[in-house]
Amino acid sequence: MNLWVLFGLLSLLLGGIGAVLPLLPTTPFVLLAAWCFARSSPRLHAWLLNSRLFGPMIRRWDENHCISRNVRRLALFMVIGVGGSSVLFFVPAGWLQFAGGVLVAIGFISVWRLKVCPDC
């Protein structure tokens, strides 16, 4: 198995885990998987591009380096809602809670800074 395929599959797995775990992002891992598959497996790259869930987002990013307004809203809501509540309610007070808050803030700022597609 090609090393790029392995990295792509690992990134896709991490993206899937990130869909259900707070503080672990989904979109960057899916984009990384698409990048790895583009360099190693035309079949897996086409499969990901034709995915109803991820295909439009990946094509938009490949063509214009932007995300839709709805994707950005959802991502920001998830960062604040899931990430923030997780840090508040499930992380012990102290430096761990502070570190979790910093990670949530970094995630929020990272998503906020992404360009929004003008036609979305």
Rank of each mutant, 00 (worst) to 15 (best):
1 M>H: 09
2 N>W: 03
4 W>N: 15
5 V>T: 03
8 G>V: 00
8 G>M: 01
9 L>A: 13
10 L>F: 09
10 L>H: 03
10 L>W: 07
10 L>C: 08
11 S>M: 04
12 L>I: 00
12 L>A: 11
13 L>W: 09
14 L>I: 08
14 L>E: 02
14 L>R: 00
15 G>K: 03
15 G>H: 03
17 I>Q: 08
18 G>V: 00
20 V>M: 03
22 P>A: 01
23 L>A: 01
23 L>W: 03
23 L>P: 03
23 L>Q: 04
24 L>A: 02
25 P>V: 01
25 P>W: 10
27 T>G: 10
27 T>R: 05
28 P>D: 05
30 V>L: 11
30 V>Y: 07
31 L>Q: 08
34 A>H: 02
34 A>N: 08
38 A>K: 06
39 R>P: 11
39 R>K: 11
41 S>W: 02
41 S>K: 02
42 P>R: 10
42 P>F: 04
43 R>K: 11
44 L>K: 02
47 W>Y: 03
49 L>C: 07
50 N>P: 09
50 N>F: 03
50 N>A: 07
51 S>C: 11
52 R>W: 10
52 R>V: 06
52 R>I: 04
52 R>L: 12
53 L>G: 08
54 F>Y: 12
55 G>W: 04
57 M>R: 01
59 R>M: 07
60 R>M: 14
60 R>W: 07
60 R>S: 15
61 W>D: 15
62 D>L: 05
62 D>G: 05
62 D>Q: 14
63 E>I: 00
63 E>N: 01
63 E>S: 05
64 N>W: 06
64 N>V: 05
65 H>K: 12
65 H>P: 08
65 H>R: 15
66 C>N: 06
67 I>V: 13
67 I>W: 02
68 S>V: 01
69 R>E: 09
69 R>V: 01
71 V>R: 12
71 V>A: 15
73 R>E: 09
75 A>C: 05
75 A>S: 09
75 A>P: 07
76 L>Y: 03
78 M>P: 11
79 V>E: 13
79 V>Q: 10
79 V>C: 11
80 I>S: 15
80 I>V: 13
81 G>C: 13
81 G>P: 13
82 V>L: 14
83 G>W: 08
84 G>E: 13
84 G>D: 14
84 G>V: 05
85 S>D: 12
85 S>I: 01
85 S>L: 13
88 L>A: 13
91 V>S: 06
93 A>K: 03
93 A>P: 10
93 A>S: 10
94 G>T: 01
95 W>C: 10
96 L>A: 14
97 Q>W: 02
98 F>S: 13
98 F>A: 15
98 F>C: 14
100 G>L: 09
101 G>Y: 06
101 G>H: 08
102 V>H: 05
102 V>T: 04
102 V>S: 11
103 L>Y: 11
104 V>C: 06
107 G>N: 11
108 F>H: 06
108 F>S: 07
110 S>R: 03
110 S>L: 05
111 V>S: 09
113 R>V: 02
113 R>W: 07
113 R>I: 00
113 R>G: 11
116 V>N: 08
117 C>A: 10
118 P>A: 06
119 D>F: 00
120 C>D: 15
